[in-house]
Design a protein around this nucleic acid. Sequence first.
DNA 1: GTCTATAAAAAGATAGAC
DNA 2: GTCTATCTTTTTATAGAC
Lengths: 181, 181
Amino acid sequence: MSRPPLAREKVLDAFERILIDEGERAATMDATARAAGVSKGGLLYHFGTKEALEAGLIVRLAELVDEDVAAIESAAEGPVAYFLRSSVMENAPLDRAIIAASRLAQSGNAPAIAALHEMRARWEDALRPHTRSTAALDLVMLVSDGLYFNNALGGDAPLTVVPRGEALEAVIALVEEAIRL
Amino acid sequence: MSRPPLAREKVLDAFERILIDEGERAATMDATARAAGVSKGGLLYHFGTKEALEAGLIVRLAELVDEDVAAIESAAEGPVAYFLRSSVMENAPLDRAIIAASRLAQSGNAPAIAALHEMRARWEDALRPHTRSTAALDLVMLVSDGLYFNNALGGDAPLTVVPRGEALEAVIALVEEAIRL
DNA sequence: GTCTATAAAAAGATAGAC
DNA sequence: GTCTATCTTTTTATAGAC
């Protein structure tokens, strides 16, 4: 696994950041190049089209999902609690990749939609053995979705103040009670 | 309350539809005019700027939220069950307005963010008397968010197959058990 | 690998005819 | 109220120098 060129990663970081903070519309190649500190020509050497730039982000997401699923399966506190706690956006690389990909998905970007689908399927597979019924698994996934996508909506101003700390632990306790095997 | 001009409503419908199905990027004034069956000049008579067009959508959302909160408060089956069941996107006018507004919110559109915040606050106020704790209210809101925004992501291809029918009822039963007063 | 220059198309908006 | 024509700026992309 060779280290990718630094400029390439900087471009990808910038593109991701603009998608998250300012939305799909603002995430132009021009704005991305400027934010990455390279010229448009420089960007176009690494990503020849906008589609290639978007695809670069999806590849990054897929790699981070691999790591995440492994962490869920081996969590000491139990997969469900770990999964819900890690569903609160912490600005971690995976969180950022998910939000950026979901921005692309909303414009109908097929690879982004497929990658998010697969991510969800893998989470479900990892959690299924730890829930007592389909409804229980659905409940866990829905709460996770709520935690993620609520905070993802507003950029600076999240749509809602998602429960944190004590409040989050209380919700996790309610869910664990409801789904106990 | 006088009936607004037909062309104006057609423009708003078209703008909303493109935002939902194709995303923020595709929702240009040109594309909106074409989809509404009017010329760009015709559109600009009703909405002089893109900002005005976006504001028109937010006004529509606010009106639909008023109706929805009234329906929640007077639901025969109980506010929580009604609220969760109606959180599954049914392509109703309110659902469409929420998704369209959330597309705008993701670009940092301040009125859209404010309107979605207020909507959420009003839902919480309506449901609070019917939950036994803050955590219980959080749980209900998170499940609702999960139901909404998951289906909202993909346009044609929703991110996940949100539980419907029997499966949805099972989740609602789990939640009602967990939050019982 | 990275740059400048530039082309071709699409964006938001204005002016004015009907 | 609705249209066509036009202007300006932005966006994606190409060409070719360094």
